[in-house]
Amino acid sequence: MLLSTLPASAQITDSASTTSGRRWYVPKHAVLQAAGGIGMVSGGVGYSVFRQRLDVDVLAGYVPQRYAGTKALGIFTLKTTYTPYTIPLRNAAWCLHPFSFGGLVNYTPSRTLNRSRDEKYYDGYYWWSSTIRFGAFVGGRVARGLKPAGSGQPRMVSLYYELGTNDLYVVSKATNLSGLKVTDILTLGVGGKFTF
C-alpha cells in the first residue's frame, strides 16, 4: 500500500516544478543502435530538449573480436541529433520525422588499438588521433505513441536510420575530390528509441 501511494505523491510534487513530471537528471529515453560506426551494437540513454527536437545521447558500443581482429573493441559515444520537423500520419498514433541531422564524438580505448599518440612516436609523428573520432550524419525517424505509463508520463517508441561519415573519411574525400565517391565514405546505422 505504501509503495503504491509513493509514486503518486512524488508526481504531484514534481509536476509543480517541472513539466516532465520527474527529476531532471532521469534520462528521457533508452537507445539501441546497430552499426553506424559506433559498434556492431551500441546502447545507451539520453535526454530530449527544445520541444523534443534535440536529443543528446550517450552510448556504449561493442565490436566482437571476430570482427575486430585480436581483441573486441569497446566504443564510447556522445551523440546529438536535431529533428526539426514532425508530420502526423493518418493513424494518429504515428508520426514521421523525415529529416534529422547530428554529430558525434567517440572514444575507442587504446588497450585495443595502436594509439597514434603513443610515446614511441615523437610529437606530431601522426597528426590525428586514432582513438577519438568525430562524426556527422543525416537521417530520419518514425515514431509511435504508446499507452502512457501509470504515472501519466507519455511513452513512445521510434525507429531511426542514419547515414554518416567520420573525420578521417572526410579528410580522405576532401583531398581526393575526384578520386573517391561520396558513397565510398558513407556509413549506415539503424536504431530504436524508447521514450519513457
Binding site: A35, M40, Y67, A68, L163, L188
Partner: peptide
C-alpha cells in the same frame, strides 16, 4: 540502401 547497405553498415572504422 539495401543494395549498398552491407558495405555501408559499418561497425567501426577500426573493424576488420
Amino acid at each position: 540502401l539495401l543494395l549498398t547497405g552491407c558495405e555501408l553498415f559499418e561497425f567501426s572504422p577500426n573493424d576488420v
